[in-house]
């Protein structure tokens, strides 16, 4: 146990969903996940294994069926007020301009309008959207919307960032750019990041630690893999380094097992049904 409490700590977290047939579907079972303040931790696992469920529990959007969630040592009640959540889907308000969307959190906190606009513009510059303050979300490309979402979640200066496959819908080039920019933002910010992805490459190159989930249902933590690559990192170079490949191979052999299990299970359900 470190001196400092963990920024986010899930203990024995189980989440069941009711199903149409009446019996509960256990998405994740007995999850222990502890993230120390200032760490960048990625959660990886096959699709449908419960990654979003984990984040939702950490955000307080969805109370666990069993187990506890602690945030900086305090049991979480209601929403996690120290966290921002960048959702997998687009979550910008379509009826608000990009600037108004980015500053929504400030507006909710009743920050005066001029200060809001000033901070908003600074953030738009920072994410490369300076010229699009007055545009509406539908006028932006997918990548630009993600940039706006990054600004929207960071502008409120949260201690914790929950990011759910933020870049998975982007093309490879845009994704690499965004990953680099995210690292630049995060470096020195001392913010805790829980980053969900199904892309092992992305997980390793960004993180201090990669947590692997097993295939669902009854998904569990297969293991945590520290990533001791030096920082600051250049995402182009790092992927060619032998250390990176070592870590990659180690996690991939475990991940592959889980992916295969997930396939088999799906094939079986298909046959049964």
């Amino acid at each position: 146990m470190p001196e400092q409490p963990y920024a986010v700590q899930l203990s024995g977290m189980t989440k069941r969903f009711p199903t149409a047939t009446g019996e509960a579907y256990t998405a994740v079972r007995d999850i222990d996940l502890a993230v120390a303040p200032g760490r960048f931790v990625s959660v990886v696992g096959p699709t449908g294994c419960g990654k979003s469920t984990l984040l939702n529990a950490a955000a307080g959007l969805m109370p666990p069926s069993e187990g506890t969630v602690h945030v900086y040592g305090e049991p979480l009640q209601g929403l996690n007020r120290r966290a921002s959540y960048m959702f997998q889907q687009d979550a910008l308000l379509p009826w608000r301009s990009v600037l108004d969307n980015v500053t929504l959190g400030l507006r909710i906190r009743k920050v005066p309008a001029d200060e809001r606009a000033e901070q908003g513009r600074a953030w738009l510059e920072r994410v490369g959207l300076g010229a699009f303050a007055a545009a509406y979300p539908h006028q932006l490309s997918g990548g630009m919307r993600k940039r706006a979402a990054v600004a929207q979640t960071w502008i409120v200066d949260p201690d914790i960032l929950l990011m759910d496959e933020p870049f998975s819908a982007l093309d490879v080039q845009t994704r690499q750019l965004m990953e680099n920019e995210l690292l630049t933002l995060w470096t020195g910010s001392e913010k805790t990041v829980i980053f969900v992805t199904h892309d092992l490459d992305e997980a390793i190159s960004l993180s201090d630690e990669v947590v692997l989930l097993s295939a669902g249902p009854d998904s569990e933590v297969v293991g945590g893999y520290p990533v001791d690559l030096p920082r600051p990192r250049d995402l182009m170079d790092i992927r060619n380094s032998p250390e990176f490949n070592d870590i990659y191979r180690r996690i991939w052999s475990d991940l592959r097992n889980e992916v295969m299990k997930s396939y088999e299970r799906r094939a079986r359900t298909l046959q049964a049904g």
């Binding site: 996690n80 921002s84 308000l93 929504l104």
Partner: peptide, 12 residues
């Protein structure tokens, strides 16, 4: 997701 996002940003 619009509702959740706005709530996470602190909305009452």
């Amino acid at each position: 997701v619009l509702v959740d996002n706005t709530r996470m940003l602190g909305a009452s």
